[in-house]
């Protein structure tokens, strides 16, 4: 299968008061068409820096992000704008990612700015309505404002916005971390449904291993800006190669041992 995304020796360094911080250090990753790649790590692992670079919202110190073979950072501004239609992003906090002053229609239609032939007026409204139905909301919601929706519904709106240009790659940066458990499950199911229906590829950035296990085909474990381990999700989670991955897996609270008395007997 063709690789839609190829991250090659990607580094992003910052200089702060004379010391260099390697937020991202020589990371190489690939994502095949129609697959879901989970990038998992703790704070400071560089996973959000990676997301920003893949979205071309920041420039790397060195290295490449190739989308369909083109390095994003070699493109002219015009070419980049055209390329942006192919990749969109869903953010962590659905309260921060929707402009409170805009209607749902305006919010969702925003990426159409990238497309000179985008539908306008009535046609645009219909297209937004279709997308709302696609993500489990109602077409009648077009003229409502973000504050009228719950966190989970807002995240659906954000997903609809990311889908309007029919992108082939979706980057989700902790897209379910701010949501309640039952809502998280619904959003994960929505992403799986969209993948099945549209064959969209997903770069899923998260700190939650349980979520990776739930929806990812591949996983990349990151720590301190470096790639620790990568491979098929099942294989990495079942038999991790690296000590850090094992540590991360062990720290995850599971329901294996319930109650402190039980745990104390178990560890003894």
């Amino acid at each position: 299968m063709a690789e839609i995304l190829k991250v090659q020796n990607l580094s992003r360094h910052y200089t702060l008061n004379g010391t260099t911080i390697k937020a991202l250090d020589e990371v190489t990753l690939g994502l095949e068409e129609g697959r879901i790649l989970g990038v998992v790590g703790e704070s400071g692992s560089g996973k959000s820096t990676l997301a920003k670079l893949v979205m071309a919202l920041d420039r790397p110190t060195s290295g490449e992000v190739r989308l369909d073979g083109d390095n994003l950072f070699d493109l002219s501004p015009r070419q980049l704008r055209a390329a942006r239609r192919n990749f969109q992003m869903v953010f962590q906090d659905p309260y921060s990612s929707l402009d409170p002053r805009q209607t749902v229609e305006k919010i969702i239609a925003e990426p159409l700015h990238l497309d000179p032939d985008a539908p306008k007026g009535r046609a645009r409204r219909d297209r937004v309505g279709e997308l709302l139905e696609d993500v489990g909301l109602s077409a009648a919601d077009v003229s409502r404002y973000p504050h009228e929706f719950s966190g989970g519904q807002r995240q659906r709106i954000a997903i609809a916005r990311a889908l309007i240009t029919k992108p082939r790659l979706l980057v989700a940066d902790e897209a379910t971390s701010a949501l309640d458990l039952t809502v998280q499950k619904q959003i994960l199911e929505l992403i799986l449904k969209l993948r099945a229906e549209h064959g969209i590829s997903v770069l899923f950035i998260t700190h939650n291993i349980g979520v990776v296990d739930e929806i990812c085909d591949e996983v990349a474990v990151m720590q301190h800006g470096r790639l620790v381990e990568t491979g098929p999700a099942r294989a990495v989670l079942d038999s991790p190669d690296k000590a850090y991955t094992r540590q991360l897996l062990a720290a995850e609270p599971t329901l294996e041992v319930i109650g402190r008395k039980a745990r104390r007997t178990a560890t003894r």
Binding site: Q184, E214, P253, T254, L255
Partner: peptide, 15 residues
């Protein structure tokens, strides 16, 4: 039960 079933598989499988 709904809350537990919303947990990722990994977390609840031990149950």
């Amino acid at each position: 039960r709904k809350l537990i079933s919303a947990l990722p598989n990994r977390v609840r499988s031990a149950l």
